[in-house]
């Protein structure tokens, strides 16, 4: 089962902090957003392995943007 990790809110994607194949646990930090001059961590919604990175750093993201997919 794959779990898409969407941007929790509108902002700029600063970095994706995991690589394809990385094992992540629920609540691990997987990406960093910037909004209102504040860095905001995106946390994994579930345990899994990073299947793909779907957004690029510096992109403007919102809740409809999938940043990465876990499986």
């Amino acid at each position: 089962m794959s779990t898409p990790v969407s941007a929790p809110m509108a902002g700029k994607l600063i970095s994706v902090d995991v690589k394809v194949g990385d094992k992540v646990k629920k609540n691990d930090e997987v990406a960093t957003l910037e909004a209102m001059k504040m860095f905001i961590k995106v946390f994994a919604p579930a345990d899994g392995i990073v299947a793909s990175i779907d957004a690029e750093a510096d992109a403007t993201v919102d809740p409809s943007t999938v940043i990465l997919t876990l499986k």
């Binding site: 929790p8 609540n27 909004a35 209102m36 919604p45």
Partner: peptide, 8 residues
């Protein structure tokens, strides 16, 4: 709760 994003 890490999944609470209240900023905006």
């Amino acid at each position: 709760n890490p999944h609470t994003y209240l900023l905006m």
